[in-house]
Design a protein around this nucleic acid. Structure first.
Lengths: 337, 337
DNA sequence: AACGCGTATGTAATCGTTTGCAAAGAAAGG
DNA sequence: CCTTTCTTTGCAAACGATTACATACGCGTT
């Protein structure tokens, strides 16, 4: 009954070699003679030796893990990005540490904490509303943004948010809508801002009216979509089409208006953003802008690994194509309006 | 420009004390004299010292992180459990390492790998379909199951799956349904099995017919719910009520039948399981069984931390209350059927 | 003066690897 | 037979913290 776990010393003793040779056999097998190598591998099997990651990391001055900082784990939107990240990090022998900025008191402070704590070889940021000041920290590990970030030149993987908004507005215009509204993401969030900006400029370039009372503030959540629905129901002069900065808000909206006896898209056309899995199963299925979330995760992880490997803090930014997905939640506006 | 990060040695030098004193000041401040403590803290501030977790962990023979093993990160169901876990682990200074069993080739092998690799002080399992053999490993870290597991006596946090199913069936019976079907989770998954079992025994104890062709196999996903809908539509003799082993399947089902021109609940009553956030925003809002997922995560994390702290491999099992949530997706069966 | 005791600090070993350097031996060339 | 070069291995010093043990000092007691 071997209660204690074997160390490299034990393996060395069993194999009749030095610890150095064991270490080399495991890390660069080509430099040791074939016979020795075999002896060592046998000893490893016999003792059930597993390399102690902590000791290895200490000696090699690395941690073997990257931290993913996101605003809210419970948001399914991030879950798929995580899946993409994991699919790259795991095979590369990096652990994926998850931390959410919301759970603590001050999000920015959390960021600084992780930047300085040396707990990770790299960071991936999924939160679009963190302060850029944190970047000044000397000796910080490489960071990759997996979304846009205000005026920062951090390496990033992002998505054409503005163009997505323009696609939505263009679709409405093509269907004949002239009164188009927008439900935004939280103020201060870059994703929200750039979608709003895209919405605005698309409206003006298409010669459609831009009405402030048709721009409703949301926070990406379903509840805020439901709130927007109530606001919409209470309006005197309603827009016939609404572009939502997130699918979740569109879902919340649809639930309320449908239960109020209105029909989507006959009474109001809507387009979401993200293409979360569920929206294709709704009735009507939601027309939306697809963000390839797994892809975003994969690219971000690859980029970060490259930076860690080469030891640079800068890197290219990657722009990922989005796609307009036409389903059943938008149609021409009701006649006579 | 201090490129290099300060070590405990630097702090000791600046403060004019030994490294031992610095370490003690930081870990148990009461044992050092007030004046020394202040000097050390000043030195810490001056040098910008951050404790090196890797070195600390090596010396203390721990890792400071726990691994969460789940079947599929992208499943929003787990996201909230993760949030609960995180809310406990983070304040307790434990990192949360996420790994999914699906991404690799052999899930069981992954489990064994993490069990033996010594990368974590503890494990939390969210996958209901892993082999119990893995537990035999000597010297393994403590494990907590956050769901049921076949015939294992691992400490766990679980939910009254069988009772949930019985609640759903009871509700249907009370409304007057006599033909009740079930869409299951994936075969071999414990959650799925116990809900199915609960469904079966509830039917018989209520004297309702148990028909095999009314039990459809799903896999918890929306797509499988949609498939079940097509199967239902194709039936000669349809059940008037369906209990789903997951909300997601119920959503998939509802989408298909609604687009096929049927109405929920007038044509078919449905009840889901989980109470995922979205279902209250659907129309009709889904009647379901609520599992307090954040709560599950919290309890599991607390249990695991206690086990780590006391160094035991066994612990109590925690049963979390579920709740029947009546919304709008079930009503009395259509007359004349 | 000797002793005991408590408090505060320092010394140095230790955790388990990795790796620069040196040494040993073999092969090759003159 | 003496260099030179190459391959293979071992020695021992890191990596940066924690902590058992030793030491030093102050102060009260006998």
């Amino acid at each position: 009954m071997d209660k204690k776990i074997a160390t490299i010393q034990d393996v060395a003793r069993v194999a009749g070699v030095s610890t150095a040779t064991v270490s080399r056999t495991l890390s660069k097998p080509t430099v040791v003679a074939a016979a020795t190598r075999e002896a060592v591998l046998n000893a490893v099997a016999e003792t059930g030796y597993r390399i102690n990651a902590t000791a290895s990391n200490l000696r090699r001055q690395r941690t073997g893990s990257v931290i993913v900082l996101l605003p809210n784990i419970a948001n399914p939107f991030f879950a798929q990005i995580l899946a993409g990240l994991s699919s790259i990090l795991t095979p590369a022998k990096y652990g994926m540490l998850i931390a959410d900025t919301q759970s603590g008191p001050d999000p920015d402070e959390r960021l600084v904490h992780y930047l300085t704590s040396g707990q990770a070889d790299g960071l991936i940021l999924l939160d679009g509303s963190l302060s850029p000041d944190a970047l000044k920290i000397p000796g910080r590990p490489p960071i990759v943004m997996a979304c846009e970030w205000m005026g920062s030149d951090l390496p990033s993987v992002r998505v054409e948010n503005g163009r997505g908004a323009a696609m939505a507005v263009g679709h409405f215009a093509q269907l004949g809508h002239r009164s188009v509204g927008h439900v935004t993401g939280p103020r201060g969030n870059v994703l929200a801002e750039s979608r709003l900006e895209g919405f605005r400029s698309a409206l003006t370039s298409l010669g459609l009216p831009l009405r402030h009372d048709w721009i409703l503030e949301g926070d990406f959540s379903m509840d805020s979509g439901a709130a927007a629905a109530n606001a919409w129901l209470a309006m005197e002069d309603r827009p016939t089409a609404l572009f939502f900065a997130s699918d979740e808000m569109a879902v919340g909206f649809m639930g309320v208006v449908q239960r109020a006896g209105y029909s989507v898209p006959e009474d109001v056309s809507i387009v979401g953003f993200d293409n979360i899995e569920i929206v294709q199963h709704l009735s009507p299925a939601l027309t939306t802008i697809r963000q390839p979330r797994t892809q975003i995760g994969i690219r971000a992880a690859e980029l970060l690994l490259r930076m860690i490997e080469t030891g640079t803090l800068t890197g290219p930014s990657d722009l990922i194509e989005i796609e307009f997905i036409r389903r059943g939640s938008a149609c021409p506006p009701p006649v006579g309006e």
